[in-house]
């Protein structure tokens, strides 16, 4: 398919925008998840929102944004609460509690979805798992000139506007409570003694994660969203010790992953010799993973290579130190 300006504006631009907004929102929150060792909470919540989405869908009978958003957010927060309850009441480790709760939620979602499919409606498991970036179309613009008309902008796909709104809310909350989030992430005990309710900020973060997971899942799916939460932040964490710098860096990685992944997938007919484009959401996760892989291996201070070299130097120095007194002893004798 030849790429024209109109097809770019109608097909590629909205998908890229959705991918960009989703990865940036996820990447922003991911910084705090990685620092708090709650990376898998993003995993658990994004699996657990499924029954909420299906129930909202069954109840309202359409894929309207707000009911589904509401159902998913309820399910996500409920799952987070139940995980905590099971962990405390059952005296289980958090990994087991998460595994039990989110798989039961997801199973409930799968069974419900099968019932929903009985009503002959368009909700299938695939779009939940992988998202449907390719189906986000912006039919209004026909050329650059049409971008000046407000009516064209009003026709912006629902997924994109939802994601933009989510990003705005998430950035506002992070900016507003930056100090508190930072403190409670690094030292929850200190935060509590200083009078900041660490538990409350934990809940706030979980609600934000649920909201972003829901907003992003339509675009990239419930499993790939985890890559967007974790990979940019984890890669950035290997480059710097300062939280502010880490966040900016992670946002940069998120942008690279979103645009790079989309373009790589869309241009697959050119480089892979396949008849049509490959899955963009999967490719974004792969690029994000590749960025993390590079960081893991080659980051200047904390990468595996730098670490191995430091350890090697250390061992060398130790050997030298061990050899020296021996030499002097021998010469004295």
């Amino acid at each position: 398919m030849p790429i024209t300006l109109a097809s770019f504006l109608q097909i590629d631009l909205p998908a890229m925008l959705a991918a960009l907004l989703a990865t940036v929102s996820c990447g922003l929150l991911g910084n705090f998840l990685v620092l708090r060792r709650q990376s898998l909470m993003g995993d658990a919540i994004s699996h657990a929102v499924l029954p909420g989405i299906v129930l909202a869908f069954l109840f309202w009978g359409s894929r309207a944004t707000w009911p589904m958003f509401f159902g998913a957010a309820c399910a996500g927060v409920l799952a987070a609460v139940i995980i905590e309850l099971v962990r405390r009441l059952g005296r289980l480790d958090s990994g087991t509690a998460m595994g039990v709760v989110f798989s039961v939620f997801f199973a409930g979602g799968v069974v419900l979805m099968e019932q929903a499919a009985a009503h002959a409606v368009d909700l299938d498991a695939d779009c939940v798992l992988y998202g449907q970036l390719e189906d986000i179309l912006w039919l209004a613009p026909t050329g650059l000139a049409s971008l000046l008309e407000p009516a064209v902008w009003a026709d912006m796909p629902r997924e994109v506007t939802t994601l933009a709104l989510t990003l705005a809310v998430v950035s506002a909350v992070v900016l507003l409570f930056y100090k508190e989030l930072k403190l409670t992430s690094f030292d929850p005990e200190l935060a509590t003694t200083l009078g900041f309710p660490a538990g409350l900020f934990n809940v706030l973060l979980m609600v934000l994660v649920a909201a972003v997971a829901v907003a992003a899942f339509e675009a990239v799916g419930s499993i790939l969203v985890i890559a967007m939460f974790i990979c940019p932040a984890a890669a950035a964490r290997l480059f710097t010790d300062r939280l502010g710098r880490q966040i900016w860096l992670s946002l940069g990685f998120a942008v690279v992953a979103a645009l790079g992944g989309y373009l790589l997938a869309a241009s697959a007919p050119l480089w892979a010799g396949v008849p049509s484009a490959l899955a963009a959401s999967g490719m974004i996760a792969v690029v994000a993973g590749a960025l993390l892989g590079v960081a893991v291996l080659f980051a200047p201070r904390y990468g595996a290579l730098a670490r191995a070299m430091r350890l090697g130097e250390l061992a060398e120095a130790r050997e030298r130190a061990a050899a020296e007194p021996l030499a002097t002893n021998l010469s004295n004798r």
Partner: peptide, 19 residues
């Protein structure tokens, strides 16, 4: 071999492999 906690590593591997 890095400073990343195990849970971040698991989440990253899980989702990237799946992707």
């Amino acid at each position: 071999h890095t400073r990343l906690p195990e849970d971040a590593a698991m989440g990253a591997v899980l989702s990237v492999f799946f992707g």
